[in-house]
């Protein structure tokens, strides 16, 4: 905590701004010591998902390659660009495609907006899989992190679901037929397959009903679920003792090792 330097004389204006600043950030400016660094993290809603201290091992870039943070960054960017796109999009089979053309021609930087959203979505599927591979190949799913691995599998499925439902929205040939093929795969399941396919499409084939269902899933239900599970995922990292660490391994039995050799 920075020591109070208010002994010097200040103008009324400065004091006003100082008071406002202090009412928002109670613990001074940039932390100067360990106490300040601790307060900076746990007195801030957006930072307090972090522990106050982390192990050096978990910060090594070659251990995690930042894959989880990359996937999260992509999701935040997708939320931001996705909400922005909602201002221009209209989930109607007759309107949607025209809105895509508008994004290219008449909306300022509309093509950048759509391109960022598209490439971030592709990248998110890719990096979520890479993150999962990292966790597996470092044995990080072992107790006590079993359940967080399960949450991770759910997050992967939600990511695929988000990407798949978003695929239909441009309503071009690519979208229409990819979703026709994708939903027909669901139809192959015995008993529940065909009802499930009809439930997703709201009809026998891809049309206006499918578009509105995919739209609601894509902009409300799936991202909402993903945020909930993401919060649980982060919370569990801390409850399970931070990132996996080699010191968690059972001590090697020297005698047994010797006998093997």
């Amino acid at each position: 905590m920075a020591p109070d330097k208010s002994t010097e004389k200040k103008s009324a204006g400065m004091e006003f701004f100082e008071n406002v600043y202090r009412s928002i950030f109670r613990y001074g400016r940039i932390p100067q010591d360990g106490e300040g660094a601790s307060y900076a993290v746990f007195n801030n809603l957006f930072l307090h998902i972090h522990p106050v201290k982390v192990s050096r091992h978990s910060l090594k870039f070659t251990y995690t390659f930042g894959l989880g943070v990359i996937a999260t960054s992509l999701f935040l960017i997708l939320t931001f660009t996705g909400v922005w796109l909602m201002f221009y999009y209209y989930p109607s089979a007759t309107e949607a495609y025209g809105r895509m053309l508008d994004l290219r021609s008449s909306v300022d930087f509309g093509f950048v907006l759509r391109n960022v959203h598209k490439w971030a979505a592709e990248a998110m599927v890719f990096f979520v899989v890479l993150h999962m591979a990292r966790v597996f190949l470092t044995g990080a799913y072992k107790p006590p992190r079993e359940f967080n691995w399960v949450i991770g599998v759910i997050l992967l499925l939600l990511t695929l679901g988000l990407s798949f439902t978003g695929y239909l929205l441009p309503w071009d040939q690519l979208a229409f037929w990819a979703i026709t093929v994708g939903t027909s795969i669901a139809g192959y399941a015995p008993v529940i397959g065909e009802p499930l396919r009809q439930f997703l499409l709201g009809s026998d084939s891809v049309g206006q009903e499918a578009l509105i269902r995919f739209y609601v899933l894509h902009v409300v239900i799936l991202p909402g679920l993903l945020y909930v599970f993401l919060a649980v995922h982060f919370w569990r990292i801390r409850k399970d003792g931070g990132l996996s660490h080699p010191s968690e391994n059972e001590p090697q039995d020297v005698a047994e090792k010797g006998a093997e050799l």
Binding site: A93, Y97, M100, L101, R104, F111, V112, R114, N115, V116, H117, K118, W119, P170, W171, D172, Q173, L174, A175, F176, S205, V206, G207
Partner: peptide, 15 residues
């Protein structure tokens, strides 16, 4: 990437 590569957009969906 967004400035270099355009997201694909084919012609209007035709069942």
């Amino acid at each position: 990437a967004a400035f270099l590569f355009n997201a694909p957009l084919e012609e209007l969906a035709n069942p």
